Amino acid sequence: MEYRHLGRSGLKVSALSFGSWVTFGDQIDEDRARACMTAAYDAGVNFFDNAEAYASGQAEVMMGNIIRSEGWTRSDLVVSTKIFWGGSGPNDRGLSRKHIVEGTRASLQRLQMDYVDLIFCHRPDPETPIEETVRAMNHVIDRGWAFYWGTSEWSAEQIRQAYEIAQREHLIPPVMEQPQYNMTHRQKVERDYQPLYRDFDLGLTTWSPLASGILTGKYNDGIPEGSRLDLDKYAGLRKRLKSEEGQRQVEAVRQLTPIAENELDCTMAQLALAWCLKNEHVSTVITGASRPEQVHENMKALEVAERLSPEHMARIEDILDNAPAPATNWRNA
């Protein structure tokens, strides 16, 4: 396993990490989740991602139970949660000081932990002043409930405002952002955040590297029965897949598959993960799995990334044809 610094911090996270979104409490039970987490841990994964919103808190309960029952040394782990959607009450969501403090304490109780290593503002909150959120996150860290705080799906302008407020008020600034990033979703990471890497050395813990399964190739010939996009709750993703842009993405996957299978001896999913790993600003790529076998396959993306040459990257870029300007800097390419 490769370990990378989280932005400008001294913390090191595994280049591939494991997240509980979609699966824990929704698709798999605790026994299956334990098998997946153990497979990731045995492969060297030290970062496990969660959120108060995942399965309405049940994902945190499951992860906490697994870590406690496995007896893993807490200092060997980097555990996160995210605060925003905590319930249906008027103060159970958003980024007010009240919800950040109460939501953090509730998450820790579900996780059965004294602290999380990372805590994220799960989305921007237009109803709460950013200064209130920055001060509340500073309080959480001062109390020892978290070591680092960051954002998820915030705009570059919002992140900069939070950082500048922290600097001005001598508070702790955000260290990391958790954006969606994959071959089909690139603008924020590769263009919008460029000034933040330069000015603040912002770290990234990226999610959805397989674009909800599109980049695995499983939807090249339609939507298989029982797949994620076949479920009613993913009707929006299904509609997007059938759109003109979605079909263009499927065609790109068809063209990329021979590079994966014939030249790199890997799956399309492993190529998609490896492509994300090549971005020098990505601290860790969050993976998910419903079976331990998927975890084992995902971990092989590290080896694929080492074999991805500048020539491969250039040909992939030609097929994707969607790079925002200016192009990002690539790790070892």
Results as ranks from 00 to 15, higher is better:
V45R: 06
Q247T: 02
S80W: 06
A325F: 12
A106M: 15
F24E: 12
A35K: 15
L231E: 14
P195A: 14
P174A: 02
N138M: 02
E30H: 05
L171R: 03
R254Q: 03
Q247F: 04
P129Y: 06
R186M: 06
K278P: 01
G71F: 15
T267W: 09
I316Y: 00
I141V: 14
C266G: 11
G89F: 08
Q161P: 06
T287D: 02
Y181H: 07
I119M: 04
E263L: 01
N332L: 10
P174F: 07
F120Q: 13
L256T: 11
M62R: 02
Q180T: 14
R93K: 04
A40Q: 01
Q180H: 11
G89N: 05
P173R: 09
L308G: 03
R198Q: 15
Q255K: 15
M1E: 05
V282Y: 01
G19V: 03
Y163I: 09
D29F: 13
A269R: 10
E157I: 13
M299I: 13
K233C: 10
N322W: 05
P324S: 12
S9K: 06
A106V: 14
M62Y: 11
F47K: 02
P129F: 00
L118C: 11
F47W: 07
A33G: 10
S107L: 07
S88F: 14
T23C: 12
A59C: 09
I316F: 06
E306T: 06
D201C: 09
Q194I: 10
H170I: 00
T206L: 09
L118F: 11
V13C: 07
A55G: 13
L196D: 04
G103M: 05
A272N: 03
A252K: 15
I130F: 00
A162W: 11
H170A: 03
A211S: 12
V295F: 00
A274K: 08
L171G: 01
Q58Y: 07
E127M: 09
E2F: 07
F47A: 09
D232C: 02
E30Y: 08
K82H: 11
A40G: 04
G57C: 05
R160E: 10
W207C: 08
C266L: 09
D230K: 00
S88Y: 15
S96K: 09
N182Y: 01
D221H: 13
P310F: 12
N279C: 02
Q27F: 08
Q270W: 10
N138G: 12
S75G: 08
G236L: 09
R97Y: 04
A327Y: 06
Y41Q: 10
S212H: 02
A51E: 00
D114P: 14
S309C: 03
R123L: 09
G87A: 13
S212I: 08
K218V: 15
A272Q: 08
A301P: 00
L320I: 11
R238C: 07
C266V: 12
H5P: 08
A55F: 10
A301V: 05
T206P: 12
A33L: 07
S152H: 08
P179G: 14
Q270N: 08
G226Q: 09
G64D: 05
E127C: 02
Q249V: 00
K12Y: 05
D199V: 02
H122F: 06
D114Y: 07
T151I: 03
K239F: 11
G44M: 03
I223C: 08
L210G: 01
E225G: 04
P326D: 00
W85R: 04
A289L: 01
